[in-house]
C-alpha cells in the first residue's frame, strides 16, 4: 500500500488555474464532514486503484494551508463557509464540485504530467485530456456524500433501475481512453479505475 500525501495548494501548479479555482472551496467544505474527529488534517481517503486487471489499495492523505489557498483565491474561506452551512438553493452541486476537485487531485497524483484541457457536463467524461473527435480521452468523476464503498460500487456498476457508469462509458465508441474517479465523504472512500482501453 502506498500513501500519497498531497497538499491541496499544489493543485494550482499541477492543473490550470481555471479548472482548480472553483473546485477548491467545495473540497474545503465537503471533505472534513460534520463530526469533530473527522475534521482534523490530514484527511485520509482509502483509494482503490484499478489499471487493466490489477487492483491495488492505497491511501490519499490530503492537507491544505488555508493561507496559501487564500493567496490564490482571496474568497476561498468565505465561499467554503457558505457551502458548508448549506444556505444555498443549489446545494446539491457541492458533492459534484468537490468530486471535480478531488478528481483533479487524483489525476495529478496517479497520472503525473497529465493536464486537463477541457470539460464536459452533459456527457461523459467530465474532464478531457484530448478532445480529438471520436478519440476522446479523459476522466469521469462522481461524488456521494454518504454510503462508502457500497455507494461507489452502485455508481460504477449500476442498479437494477439505472445503468452504471462503467457500462455507459464502454458503450461510447467516441471515447478512446477513460477512467472513472469516484469519491465518498462519509465514510471516506475513493476509486480510480481505468475503464478504457
Amino acid at each position: 500500500m502506498t500513501v500519497y500525501r498531497y497538499a491541496l495548494e499544489q493543485l494550482y501548479a499541477d492543473q490550470d488555474f481555471e479548472w482548480v479555482v472553483d473546485t477548491i472551496p467545495a473540497v474545503v467544505a465537503w471533505v472534513p464532514g460534520d463530526s469533530r474527529p473527522k475534521r482534523s488534517q490530514p484527511f485520509r481517503f482509502p483509494l482503490r486503484h484499478t489499471v487493466g486487471q490489477y487492483t491495488s489499495t492505497h491511501q490519499l492523505e490530503l492537507t491544505w494551508d488555508i493561507g496559501q489557498l487564500r493567496a490564490q483565491d482571496p474568497t476561498v474561506s468565505q465561499r467554503a463557509k457558505r457551502l458548508r452551512t448549506g444556505k444555498t438553493v443549489q446545494r446539491e452541486h457541492l458533492a459534484e464540485l468537490a468530486a471535480y476537485g478531488l478528481t483533479l487531485v487524483a489525476i495529478s497524483v496517479l497520472m503525473p504530467r497529465r493536464r486537463v484541457v477541457a470539460m464536459n457536463n452533459g456527457v461523459a467524461p467530465d474532464f478531457l485530456f484530448d478532445v480529438t473527435p471520436n478519440r476522446l480521452s479523459g476522466v469521469e468523476a462522481a461524488g456521494r456524500s454518504r454510503g462508502g464503498w457500497g455507494a461507489l460500487n452502485a455508481v460504477g456498476n449500476g442498479t437494477p433501475k439505472k445503468r452504471g457508469k462503467r457500462k455507459q462509458l464502454l458503450a461510447r465508441t467516441d471515447i478512446a481512453e477513460v477512467s472513472l474517479s469516484l469519491w465518498c465523504a462519509s465514510p471516506r472512500a475513493s476509486v480510480m479505475e481505468q475503464v478504457k482501453p
Binding site: 479548472w19 472553483d22 465561499r79 443549489q90 464540485l97 484541457v117 477541457a118 470539460m119 464536459n120 478532445v131
Partner: peptide, 24 residues
C-alpha cells in the same frame, strides 16, 4: 481551434457550477 473552443466552454461551465452552488 476546436480544442480551444471546447476548453472555453468547459471553464465557463465550471465557473457557472460554483456560482450555482453559491445560490444567491
Amino acid at each position: 481551434v476546436y480544442a480551444s473552443a471546447r476548453a472555453t466552454s468547459g471553464k465557463l461551465k465550471l465557473k457557472a457550477k460554483a456560482r450555482l452552488a453559491d445560490g444567491r
